[in-house]
């Protein structure tokens, strides 16, 4: 481990430690915003783990997230909560593996379309199952888990995701993914099983999103398909990650923090103009800051980044 890496690790640890005190200092609105920030930090970082190096734009986040949430909501009376978290993760992993087997050998556009419709399809199926089974359209989730506990769970998950991403970035698997992103033909002829490498990371990314959904289920006492499988979630994750910059481990976080506040402001003051704002952010990413805020900052300081992922 080099000196800069040690510093990076220390800074990261300090940030997490400081973040752990948020629920003690702030309740209500502040805490709720903090939960949202950490949730998106987890989702964007795990999204980037797969989509960053491969350039496959996945819009399946909402499908994983929603299934995780539904796993908890549907079975909360049957199994203890920690078991459900494990189950949700497994459901996410299995779904990701299936999608991966079906689509990852295809080109980018197919993958985007496939993932885009996936959440919608799962939502329609869940709604249909619920109505034909005669229950109401939603599920009641009653647990003793309050907002600070959700926050701490998410924070622990975030720490795990950052650590895992950092390890993977330095591993053969991480290198393989970067090569695949560069030129898949070269990757194959260098001995990389491209399908396996992609599926492995997609599974990690998908199971983290499912676990995040599971952890957040108790936040809403009533879970409906429209909430759990909101396609907006997938788009927000993509935007925040790209806005921050996907070529660095800490990049997505730079997108999450300002965007969450801005989004909160816009939904509160101009609820009809959220789509417009999303659209403008997409164009901003494509035409003005293709490497995100992280790229901007690096251009400004023009020296070796402290936390090189």
């Amino acid at each position: 481990m080099t000196g800069t890496e040690k510093t990076g690790l220390a800074v990261g640890a300090a940030i997490f430690l400081a973040a752990a005190f948020v629920p003690l200092l702030s309740g209500g609105y502040g805490l709720s915003l903090a939960v949202t920030v950490v949730m998106y930090a987890v989702l964007t970082t795990s999204w980037t783990l797969f989509s960053g190096p491969t350039h496959y734009i996945s819009l399946a986040t909402a499908a994983f997230f929603g299934l995780g949430m539904y796993t908890v909501a549907a079975l909360i009376d049957v199994f203890p909560y920690p078991v459900l978290l494990v189950m949700a993760t497994a459901v996410g992993a299995v779904l990701a593996a299936l999608i991966g087997l079906a689509t990852l050998r295809l080109s980018g556009v197919y993958f985007v379309i496939f993932t885009l419709g996936l959440a919608e399809m799962v939502r329609q199926l869940v709604t249909w199952v619920q109505t034909t089974m005669g229950t109401s359209s939603g599920l009641v989730v009653l647990t003793g888990i309050d907002e600070p506990m959700i926050y701490w769970q998410l924070l622990a998950l975030a720490a795990a995701v950052y650590l895992a991403s950092w390890r993977i970035g330095r591993s053969r698997l991480g290198f393989a993914l970067r090569i695949i992103g560069g030129d898949e033909v070269v990757a194959r002829h260098s001995g990389i099983n491209t399908a396996h490498a992609k599926i492995a990371l997609f599974v990690i990314s998908g199971s983290v999103a499912a676990l995040t959904g599971a952890i957040l289920a108790p936040r809403w006492t009533y879970v409906e398909p429209v909430i759990a499988f909101s396609p907006m979630l997938s788009f927000l994750v993509v935007i925040m990650a790209l806005l921050g910059g996907v070529h660095r481990l800490w990049g997505p976080l730079l997108g999450v923090i300002p965007f969450t506040f801005l989004w909160d402001l816009v939904t509160a003051t101009f609820p009809n103009q959220t789509a417009l704002m999303l659209g403008l952010c997409f164009l901003l990413i494509v035409y003005i800051i293709p490497n995100g805020f992280a790229g901007l900052i690096e251009n400004l300081i023009r020296r070796r980044p402290l936390l090189a992922g």
Binding site: H55, I57, S107, G108, V109, V112, F235, L242, N272, Q273, T274, A275, L276, M277, L278, G279, L280, C281, F282, L283, I285, V286, Y287
Partner: peptide, 23 residues
Amino acid sequence: HLEVDSILATFGLSFILVGVMLA
């Protein structure tokens, strides 16, 4: 590279059009 760019740009456009029509 073009594929990713055009996906993001046309998504952006689609959201902007939705925003304009909503308005």
